[in-house]
Design a protein around this nucleic acid. Structure first.
Length: 684
DNA sequence: TTTCGGCGACTTTTT
DNA sequence: GTCGCCGAAA
């Protein structure tokens, strides 16, 4: 099949661009992933590129897997030479290959966020610092924030005791990481960046190798990730960046849309290709979403359109209480089901996780199957972390994090007192080195770990996992625990995961990295036909026949915490935009006059975002007559109407704001906002 | 050492 | 309303 068949002109242009860097602004539902994968297939098939020359980077493992699957479906050849993965995955790969030059032990281990947090707690304690004054959570944010700016402790200037202390903690934390051979997520990136920066040989090697770098969800990159890309791109490298500034919803964790503008400058992008044709949603849904996002000022400018005009109006329901809102939603789901819509094609979206409970309650009462996304993931479960900690300790005795996690789990009578004295003995050495000969119980533990080590050496990975689960006593512990059933199942699942795990080097080291880098699917039950419940954030990238967007109230959505600064409000609006554009055919908007939150009743007014949706696109249901007007008053002009202005000439109405303002695209004078009171517009 | 009860927090989340 | 953490009692 031809790679280009079925692509629209803009998509084709993007896929077939000559060898130079490019920025693709890809709106929601505009075929972004398709363009990205087609580009790779095109480079290989039509431009004679070798898979070896291609590096493609994504944000999630899921996206990376999807990309690989799609490319291998398009190409008859093996894609093994390609580097496709997340930023962290690719940095890990690079650091494993050059661990010596990066100053890391061969089998360095990766700390996930919770490992990192406990490491910070340990460091704070060892420095005798008050964790009330310096909360570990904040320190974690501080450390990661600095690393993401490319800053090490010695790069910081401290003017007062507070910042000096934080700097000291940062320093001690790094020292402890180095002692244990541990690397946190931000460190993976920063190390890799510094490696490329300092080592010319390695840098030039990758620069000549990767002639094509492709980046997905470019709007979500942080500063360090962008700098990493910049370092990696040689003079003959073409960087193909795909993103949508309107869908940037992760600024709160460091994503920097400014990278898009910088990219245009740094890589001398001549023309930005915009993919504006939406293949997902009906016209009314798209018009409404466009009307909302237009209220943002910091935009690169893009207007989605569809040939699939019209469709059903959006439905709006204002309920007296959150319970009644949920009941309304459940009723509607029932009738959608009877119309033949699959339950799994229906999504209930909300701004914050706390809102799911009332919805779950209503769904449960109505006996409708549902699936909630979010929550604990496989490799984050305590029983899994415990088992992995045994593996870690067996593999590397200096791993204090692993030692502390399991020294008394299952309980073997080694308490805080013993540990404290052990830590005092150890100083800057690892706990393991001082554990023997301290007391009887610790000796037993040391012997246990050593006999595990003997058993495990030479065993296959799944055998090792199984041995550790048995010998540690985890298995019998959970057998005796009345709620241990699920945990035992998960431990079995861990053995399975180890059995199917493929590795190229040391299987244990790679398996442990895998566990840290890929927290695993959230839960099973993928295939069942169930209503999908999730936050708007986790819905990004997905689409559904029908979407219910609930809790559209001031203080909730937009969230009260983002009300203060303008940037926060614009991010909330982008979130609203993302939420609305998830719907293909039907979009329900709802809010409640009163809502139970944090154990007390709140009375909220409808979200300001509702007012930004043109009234004629919305079908109100039920109570709405009594409410204060939530929607924009009908403008005398319709979007798309032709108008004439005495000075600017002919134009087309792009948007209306209330009764008195319109945005017009004039054929000669360009796009302008006009006050109807003064403008003397004439409809033609 | 373990367990239980009280108190405070509480937006969004991937690696 | 619920979860997680911390301190006091068993």
């Amino acid at each position: 099949m031809d790679i280009l068949s079925g692509l629209n002109p803009e998509q084709t242009e993007a896929v077939t661009l000559p060898h130079r860097s490019a920025l693709i602004l890809a709106g929601a539902g505009s075929g972004k992933t398709r363009v990205l994968t087609s580009r790779i297939a095109y480079l290989i098939q039509k431009r004679g590129a070798s898979p070896h020359e291609i590096l493609a980077v994504t944000f999630t493992n899921k996206a990376a897997r999807e990309m690989m699957a799609r490319i291998s479906a398009m190409l008859p050849i093996s894609i093994r030479g390609m580097w496709i993965g997340t930023f962290h995955g690719l940095c890990n790969r690079m650091l494993r290959a050059h661990h010596k030059d990066a100053g890391l032990p061969e089998a360095f281990q990766i700390l996930d966020s919770s490992d990192q947090l406990s490491m910070i707690k340990r460091v704070v304690k060892s420095l005798n610092i008050d964790d009330e004054k310096y909360p570990p959570k904040e320190l974690q944010h501080f450390i990661n924030g600095n690393k993401e700016e490319g800053l090490r402790p010695h790069d910081l200037t401290a003017y007062d005791t507070f910042s000096r202390t934080r700097q000291q903690i940062f320093e001690a934390y790094e020292a402890q990481c180095n002692r244990e051979g541990a690397v946190d997520f931000a460190e993976l990136l920063l190390r890799s960046y510094e490696l490329l920066k300092r080592n010319e040989l390695i840098r030039e090697h990758y620069r000549t190798r990767f002639r094509h770098i492709l980046i997905d969800e470019f709007q979500d990159t942080n500063r360090l990730q962008y700098q990493w890309i910049k370092l990696l791109a040689g003079k003959d490298t073409a960087v193909f960046a795909v993103g949508d500034d309107d869908q940037s919803i992760y600024a709160f964790r460091g994503a920097n849309t400014g990278n898009m503008l910088e990219f245009e400058r740094d890589f001398q992008i001549e023309n930005v290709i915009k993919l504006e044709q939406n293949y997902r949603s009906h016209g009314n849904i798209l018009d409404a979403a466009n009307a909302v996002i237009r209220h943002n000022t910091a935009r690169m400018g893009k207007n989605l359109w569809t040939s699939d005009a019209g469709g059903e109006k959006l439905r709006f329901y204002q309920a007296p209480t959150d319970m009644m809102e949920a009941e309304y939603i459940v009723e509607e789901i029932g009738s959608l089901g009877r119309e033949g819509v699959a339950l799994s094609d229906i999504a209930l979206l909300y701004r914050s996780n706390a809102q799911s409970r009332v919805l779950e309650h209503a769904l449960f009462n109505a006996n409708l199957p549902y699936r909630v996304y979010g929550g604990l993931r496989f490799f984050e479960r305590q029983e899994i972390k415990h088992a992995l900690a045994y593996l870690r300790l067996v593999h590397s005795m200096d791993d204090d994090g692993a030692f502390l996690r399991i020294v008394n789990f299952p309980a073997r009578g080694i308490g805080a007192k013993t540990i404290e004295s052990l830590q005092a003995d150890a100083g800057s050495a690892s706990l393991w080195t001082k554990a023997r000969g301290k007391n009887k119980k610790l000796d037993e533990f040391v012997n246990l770990v050593e006999s595990m080590k003997r058993e495990v050496s030479g065993a296959s990975l799944p055998e090792a996992v199984e041995t550790v689960i048995e010998m540690s006593g985890l298995k019998s512990h959970y057998l005796n625990d009345k709620d241990g059933e699920d945990r035992l199942e998960n431990l079995d699942e861990l053995v399975n995961a180890a059995a199917v795990f493929e590795s190229e080097g040391d299987p244990l080291v790679e398996f442990l990295s895998h566990a840290a880098l890929e927290a695993g699917e959230r839960q099973s039950g993928e295939g069942e036909d169930a209503v999908q419940l999730m936050t708007v954030h986790s819905a990004k990238g997905l689409e559904f026949h029908s979407v219910f967007l609930s809790g559209l109230e001031e203080g909730l959505f937009p969230h009260s915490n983002s009300r203060n600064d303008a940037g926060g409000l614009e991010e909330e609006r982008r979130l609203m935009y993302v939420a609305m554009t998830r719907a293909r055919r039907r979009l329900y908007l709802s809010c409640a006059q009163s809502r139970m939150l944090h154990g007390q009743t709140n009375y909220n007014i409808p979200s300001r975002f509702l007012k930004e949706i043109p009234e004629q696109l919305v079908q109100p249901i039920g109570y709405v007559e009594e409410r204060a007007p939530a929607f924009e008053k009908k403008s005398p002009y319709r979007i798309g109407a032709n108008v004439f202005h005495p000075k600017f000439g002919e134009g087309v109405v792009l948007a209306c704001e209330g009764m008195d303002q319109v945005q017009v695209n004039f054929r000669r004078a360009g796009v302008k906002w006009l006050a109807l009171e003064y403008a003397n517009l004439i409809a033609i």
